[in-house]
Lab assay of single mutants.
Amino acid sequence: VSSEIYQWVRDELKRAGISQAVFARVAFNRTQGLLSEILRKEEDPKTASQSLLVNLRAMQNFLQLPEAERDRIYQ
């Protein structure tokens, strides 16, 4: 997982004009609270716990989908 993931998520929230709650639900089936905590802490993926890595990997995989497909999912 790239250490850029945190910025990618922030950029996607702005680009798509969606809330953290929507992104958390569709990208990795978690709550806004968890996403907020992940973004606030910005732990280095190289030293992250296994559970954090699973979530970061799910977010990264979601962000690799084509933009149009992500936008459809947000609706």
Results as ranks from 00 to 15, higher is better:
Asp11Arg: 10
Glu43Met: 08
Leu52Lys: 08
Gln7Asp: 15
Tyr74Leu: 01
Lys14Arg: 08
Gly33Leu: 12
Glu42Thr: 04
Arg10Ile: 15
Ala68Leu: 10
Glu43Phe: 04
Gln50Val: 10
Ile5Cys: 05
Asn61Tyr: 05
Asp71Met: 04
Asn61Ser: 10
Asn29His: 07
Pro66Lys: 08
Ala58Gly: 05
Pro66Phe: 00
Ala68Ser: 13
Leu52Ala: 08
Gln50Ser: 12
Leu53Ala: 08
Leu52Phe: 05
Arg40Gln: 15
Ser19Lys: 06
Arg15Gly: 00
Ser19Tyr: 01
Gln50Arg: 13
Leu52Cys: 12
Glu4Ile: 07
Ala68Asn: 10
Ser2Trp: 07
Gln75Pro: 05
Lys14Met: 07
Tyr6Val: 02
Leu35Ala: 09
Val22Leu: 10
Val26Ile: 07
Asp11His: 14
Arg10Trp: 15
Gln75Ile: 06
Thr47Asp: 08
Val54Leu: 11
Arg40Ser: 14
Glu4Arg: 10
Phe28Cys: 09
Ala21Val: 07
Ala24Met: 04
Leu65Thr: 09
Gln50Ala: 13
Tyr74Ile: 01
Arg40Leu: 14
Phe62Glu: 02
Val1Arg: 00
Ala58Gln: 13
Arg70Lys: 06
Ala27Thr: 10
Gln64Val: 08
Gln64His: 12
Tyr74Met: 08
Thr31Tyr: 05
Ala27Gln: 02
Lys46Glu: 14
Asn55Arg: 07
Val9Cys: 09
Asn61Gly: 09
Thr47Ile: 10
Ala27Asn: 00
Glu12Asp: 08
Ala48His: 01
Gln75Arg: 11
Glu12Ile: 05
Ser19Thr: 15
Arg70Asn: 04
Ile73Ser: 13
Val9His: 02
Thr31Cys: 07
Val1Leu: 03
Lys41Gly: 06
Ile18Gln: 02
Val22Glu: 08
Ile18His: 00
Glu42Pro: 00
Glu12Phe: 04
Leu53Thr: 10
Ala68Glu: 13
Gln32His: 13
Ile73Lys: 07
Phe23Cys: 04
Trp8Pro: 03
Ser36Met: 12
Leu56Ser: 03
Gln60Tyr: 10
Arg72Phe: 12
Ala21Asp: 14
Arg57Asn: 10
Gln75Trp: 08
Glu43Gly: 04
Ala58His: 12
Arg70Ser: 01
Gln60Pro: 02
Arg70Tyr: 00
Tyr74Lys: 01
Gln32Ile: 03
Ala68Gln: 12
Asn61Trp: 04
Ala21Leu: 09
Gln20Phe: 04
Arg57Ile: 13
Glu67Leu: 10
Gly17Ile: 03
Gln32Lys: 11
Glu4Gly: 15
Ser49Met: 02
Trp8Arg: 15
Lys46Asp: 08
Ala68Phe: 11
Tyr74Gly: 01
Leu56Glu: 00
Gly17Trp: 04
Arg57Tyr: 10
Leu35Met: 06
Trp8His: 15
Tyr74Asp: 05
Ile18Cys: 08
Asn29Glu: 09
Glu67Arg: 10
Ser2Met: 15
Ala48Val: 07
Arg30Val: 04
Leu63Asn: 00
Val1Cys: 03
Glu42Arg: 10
Gln32Val: 07
Thr47Met: 13
Lys46Arg: 13
Ser51Pro: 11
Ala68Val: 14
Gln60Lys: 10
Leu52Tyr: 05
